[in-house]
Amino acid sequence: MKKNILLYGLAFAGGFTFERYYPYIKAFINNKSQKNDDHSFKSMLEEGNYIQPKVIELMHSSPDKHFLHNFIAQHNEALNVFKIYYPDKLEQKIYSDNLESEDKIHLHFVFNAADHLQGHSSIVHGGLLATLIDNAFGQLSYLASGQIPTATANLNINYRKPVKTNHDYMITAEIEKIEGRKVFLKAKIYDQNKTICTEATGLFLTVQWGGQMWKNALDKIKAATNLDQKLIKIDQEQKK
């Protein structure tokens, strides 16, 4: 009787764990097999030692995501390409006290918008560009603040040239300075010829709310990644 109860308990615990972490494992697997890795800026970013952080990519594919990822980034007919690149040694820069050096904290977003995201014919809707820039600022200020959540206080955008659908573009965002709770940022959108199409500045403020949500998401992703690695190891041992 006790043995049956123990087996049922283990089965329940196993099922609960699988149900909780399977979406993350699935996201981890899907992330490895994404087909939109090729774009016009790939060689340049690789030469500059830029990498795609696994945690950020997983967060974009996991159940704990906001509307940008639910309704735009993961929509099959929205973005042909949506990739984020950080400098290889970003963590060292984040915790550096010398933010005014030439080697400032920055990141790159590479995107290619499909026709479903046009405003005028074959022109990407300006609101989408504002959303992508705002999202880049939010992620960068979150990291630069020591992984404290931030919120948009001000966002200014100058649209200089049309951004066309079905073309590769790159958003370069960087921290200008940090003053207490205030994080000042700037960004530019470049086309394949390095022509500036859009410029933006932003002010983000660190906030008290939302921190636990991000921590929970990161903990789940870490646990799912460890579980996925264990499953891969077991599979390799079985094949031997």
Rank of each mutant, 00 (worst) to 15 (best):
Y24W: 09
Y21R: 03
I29F: 10
S121R: 13
K230P: 03
Y21S: 05
M1C: 11
I51C: 01
Q118D: 03
L203K: 09
K35P: 02
G48F: 07
A130G: 15
G15S: 05
T152R: 01
D134Y: 02
K83F: 01
G127K: 05
Q236M: 15
N135L: 04
K220S: 14
H60D: 12
N76A: 14
Q229G: 04
N4P: 00
I148C: 13
S62P: 00
E237N: 13
T150Y: 04
D168T: 08
T198A: 08
D228G: 07
A130Y: 03
I84W: 04
Y169M: 03
K188A: 11
K182E: 09
Q34V: 08
N30F: 05
V124I: 07
Y85H: 08
D64L: 13
I175T: 07
A144E: 01
P162R: 06
F71W: 11
V183E: 02
N216L: 12
H106W: 02
H66C: 15
H120I: 09
G211R: 07
G138W: 09
P149Y: 05
G127T: 06
S145W: 08
A78I: 00
L68W: 02
G202P: 02
A73W: 00
I25S: 02
D191Y: 03
I157R: 02
V124S: 02
N216C: 10
K186G: 09
I189H: 03
T165Y: 01
K177W: 04
T195S: 10
K65Y: 07
Q52V: 13
D103H: 08
D168N: 08
H69R: 03
A223S: 10
A200P: 00
Q118S: 12
S43G: 06
I178N: 01
Y24M: 04
L99Y: 12
D103F: 05
I178G: 04
Q238S: 13
E176T: 11
D97S: 15
D115C: 04
L45K: 05
T225Y: 08
A13K: 01
I25L: 11
D64A: 15
Y142T: 01
T131H: 01
